[in-house]
Design a protein around this nucleic acid. Sequence first.
DNA 1: TATTGTTATACTCTATAACTATA
DNA 2: TATAGTTATAGAGTATAACAATA
Lengths: 157, 157
Amino acid sequence: MPDKGPEKGPRITDATLRQFTGYSMKRAFITIQADVARTLDPFGLRMITFSALAMVGDNPGLSQSQLAAGLAIERPNLVVIIDELERRDLITRDRVPTDRRTYALQLTDEGAQLLSQATEALLAHEERIMKDVAGDDEAAMLRAFKHIEESAPGRDR
Amino acid sequence: MPDKGPEKGPRITDATLRQFTGYSMKRAFITIQADVARTLDPFGLRMITFSALAMVGDNPGLSQSQLAAGLAIERPNLVVIIDELERRDLITRDRVPTDRRTYALQLTDEGAQLLSQATEALLAHEERIMKDVAGDDEAAMLRAFKHIEESAPGRDR
DNA sequence: TATTGTTATACTCTATAACTATA
DNA sequence: TATAGTTATAGAGTATAACAATA
C-alpha cells in the first residue's frame, strides 16, 4: 500500500445526485442565500424583509394581499413582516377611502434610503459571487431559470 | 381612459428584485423543488431522504457523520432520517468491529430498488422541466453553479 | 356571500447544547 | 480528551382554519 493520503477525509461522492439540476442548484442557492443573509444583517434585514421593501418600492400603494402574492408567501405570514417594517418606520400602512378593508403600503423616506443602501450592498456582493462566472454563462443561466419557472404546472399562484 | 384590461390583476412588478441572481434562482429552485416533491411522494420519499439513499448507494459503508457532512446537514437531524429509512428496511446500520462507535450504512436490496425507481422517475421529470432549456444553456448554468459554490467564503463545512 | 387583514396554530427544516458509549 | 451517535429543544419558514370588519 503506497499512500492512503490524509487518513481523515470523508472521500464521499455525490455522483448520483449530481445528475439532477435541482441538486446542483440547491447547493449554489444555499451559497448565495448565506451570502445574502450576511450582507443584509448589518441593515437589520432578512431576505424576505428586503424583498418586501423592494416590492413596495416598485409598487407603491399596493395591498398586503397583492404583496403576499408577489412574494409568493401566505397572507398570514406577511402580517408579522409588515408589523416589523412598520414598527421600524420603514413602511406605512395607509387606509384607502374607497375600500376600508385594505391598506396601501408605502415606503417612508427612511425605508427608501435603507432599501437603496441595502440594494447597493447586495449588488456589490453579487458581483463578487459571480466574478468567476462568464458573462455568457450568467445570461444563459438566467434564460434557463425563466424556462424552468415557466414549466411549472400550477403556476397560477 | 381607453381600456384598463382585466380589473382584478395584481399588476405587480419585481423589477428591483430581478436584478439579483439569487432572486431568480430562488424562484426557479422553488419550481423544481415542488416538482421533485410531487415526483417522490408516491415513493414515500422526500428530497432529503432520497438524497440520503443516493449517497449511501454511492458510498456504501459510510458513517452517519460522513453522510451528514455530505448532505450538508447537522448530525442530529440525520438521525431521524436514518431511523425512518431503517424502519422501512431501505438501509441497514451495521456495527463496525474496528470502531464500535460508528455505524456502516448500507442499502438493502429493497432500498437499492426503490432508489433506482425513484431516480428513474426524477430523471423523467427533470427532462420535462428542462425541455425548453437549450442544451448549451443547461451546460452554462451548471458551470455557473460550480463557480458560485466555489466562491463561498467558509466552504469548509 | 366574498375579501382583507388578522390570530392562533401546526408542521417542517434547521441549528445548538448536552448526554452516552466508545476511542 | 476527543469523537459517533443520540436526545431534547429552540428557532426559523411555511401552511391552514377561523374570525372581525368591510365590501
